[in-house]
Amino acid sequence: MSKIEELAQAVETGKAKIVPQLVQEALDEGIDPMEILNKGMIDAMGVVGEKFKNNEIFVPEMLVAARAMKKGVDVVKPHLGAGNSATIGKMVMGTVAGDLHDIGKNLVIMMIESAGFEVVDLGVDVPIEKFLEAAADPDVNIVGCSALLTTTMPSLRDTVAALNKAPNRSQFKIMVGGAPITQEFADEIGADCYTDDAAAAAEAAKKLVQG
């Protein structure tokens, strides 16, 4: 097994203690840091997401894999050259005003970070103005809004409506999600993208910035 395969396997199985060590060994072997990041970790998290989607693994297994990857990223990051960005995009993410739920949002953040994004977490009960302010950052490619309650779906609608009127609207995409949200509702309120779980969200986010 190559060092990269070994690393990918350690990430997939969530071995947070071994991952940083394997990243260091890969660096010592002279493997390109970008390859370590992409092939050894981001692709491995893609496999994890796929397995989760197919009900082969459970939420905590996805969490430990993401945690393991994070430890690996810390080691590889300083070695990425100036031309090589560690991130494929920037996302801001929050739970809409009136809604205090954060478990689902945090899970999505973990998976999207693991897909290679920089994510700014706006937290919960985020007022529309705060979303707008964050979306004004010209580096932001995606704005994610989460709502966990049927009673906060109108708040999600208002947030998306306000984002749709932002002067720099063409620079970012809007992703929405949360237990009561459906594709139909997402279309109705004018969001660009909806997915029904964290793994699918990471896949979709990649597609949004790459295609």
Partner: peptide
Amino acid sequence: LGMDDYCMEYI
């Protein structure tokens, strides 16, 4: 009882 990190033993 909080003795199983991330419920991994259970899983």
